[in-house]
Design a protein around this nucleic acid. Structure first.
Lengths: 228, 228
DNA sequence: TAAAAAAGTTAGCCATGACTAACAAATATA
DNA sequence: TATATTTGTTAGTCATGGCTAACTTTTTTA
């Protein structure tokens, strides 16, 4: 068994790579993740990812065959989940206690998730009374590192007449988050699909008393729970 | 005038050096600070400090003549004060909201002070209702960057019969902080000087109902306000 | 004041983690 | 199946921020 206590010796970069791999492998349930895909996601060159992946393989966080797809070891996943836990707890804190809005939290949480202190994160969790969801509606992994995802689908997968509730948005881009807020959508908003236009896959939706048309790309980044 | 808005482009290292210089120049009111002194303080080699000082000079945060002593520019000081503000606000948060003890906060605050977000620190300040002192008793610089120090003297400068109140301790070493807590001293403890022993400068003090003998070195690191 | 000690500087090295350019392997497509 | 195209790898470069060893300047002190 590999050392359980080297978890804190990772650099910020190593942590970023492990978290990115986890997001690509697990969250976006891509079948297989390649080197260039990882490079795209992290906005670095393929040479950089190749280099770092090599390093993470020697540390037993990543496995892959030469010219093959990438996968995380259990230990790699465990580190990624801890980072996600930290990220989401900080986002929750920023929104609920420090007047940050939905769309402002990501960048700061991206910094805060690298702070190394077990006590800090567990006390923060306790201080907020062990929240279950972050401000984007995502589940927060617990202290034991148990990760689960909401049964969610993208808004774009629904058809005319469906009713749903907003449970999460893809929080990669600040501009996107801003846009979602601006049109009036919030967590738990009840949305009705009025029409899916065939020619460009744009969708007319209604929420509260508002009717809006959103693009396919928009709908791909909005996660909902179908209301039966 | 140099650019006021390059304040956020500093690396963690650059920030550490500027803060260290400020502590040495202002806080410990050393007359002049040399390169090797800075190296000792930061526990790096003189070559490393020399290198970084050179860089900070080109950025107009530090001034010095070749083979001469070091000084901060106004801009250098301003950055250092902001870091100290962040450090002390985080320490206050950790102690008052997250159950950290006096002696546990330093290392975590050392990480948190490098988080770059103006909003974060100002909201944290507001959340805690604009605290004036950190858990070590030091004054927290305000949002305008105004820095001031308590009129304090070291415990070692007092003489038999003096009464004083603990206002701060030098928070460099975790072991020292632990020791201070363990013998029962806390912020605002009222201390009476019972005896200063000539042969080794050790001091017998009384606080609450406890009588303790402390070394000169200990007394050098404990700051008090004389009670008249 | 001259030699010794301390303080400051420089040159050259290392690791990390970026990059580009060139190349190799795998996959897609004509 | 042969050839593009995409994907992955390697070699070599750069900046940052450490280091040691050797050197120079300044300060101390005998």
């Amino acid at each position: 068994m590999t050392n359980k206590y080297n978890l804190n010796n990772l650099t910020k970069s190593e942590e970023d790579y492990l978290k990115a791999l986890f997001q690509l492998i697990i969250d976006d349930n891509s079948t297989k993740v390649g080197n260039n895909q990882l490079a795209d996601y992290l906005k670095v060159s393929p040479a950089s990812t190749n280099n770092m992946v090599k390093k993470l393989k020697t540390k037993n966080y990543v496995v892959s065959e030469k010219y093959g797809k990438l996968d995380l070891t259990e230990e790699g996943k465990s580190i990624a989940v801890r980072l996600i836990r930290k990220h989401r707890l900080w986002e929750t804190f920023l929104c609920n206690y420090l007047n940050f809005t939905w769309d402002e939290v990501h960048d700061v949480a991206e910094q805060l998730e690298h702070i190394k202190s077990q006590k800090l994160i567990n006390e923060l969790d306790r201080f907020m009374d062990f929240p279950k969801k972050d401000p984007h509606g995502e589940l927060i992994p617990n202290a034991k590192g148990e990760y689960s995802v909401l049964p969610k689908v993208t808004l774009s997968s629904l058809v005319e007449g469906d009713m749903c509730q907003l449970v999460a948005v893809n929080d990669g881009s600040v501009n996107f988050l801003k846009y979602v807020s601006e049109i009036g959508l919030a967590l738990s908003s009840e949305i009705k699909i009025l029409e899916v236009r065939e020619f460009d896959k744009s969708i007319r939706i209604q929420f509260n008393t508002v009717v809006e048309t959103v693009t396919r790309k928009f709908a791909d980044n909005v996660f909902v729970k179908k209301v039966v």
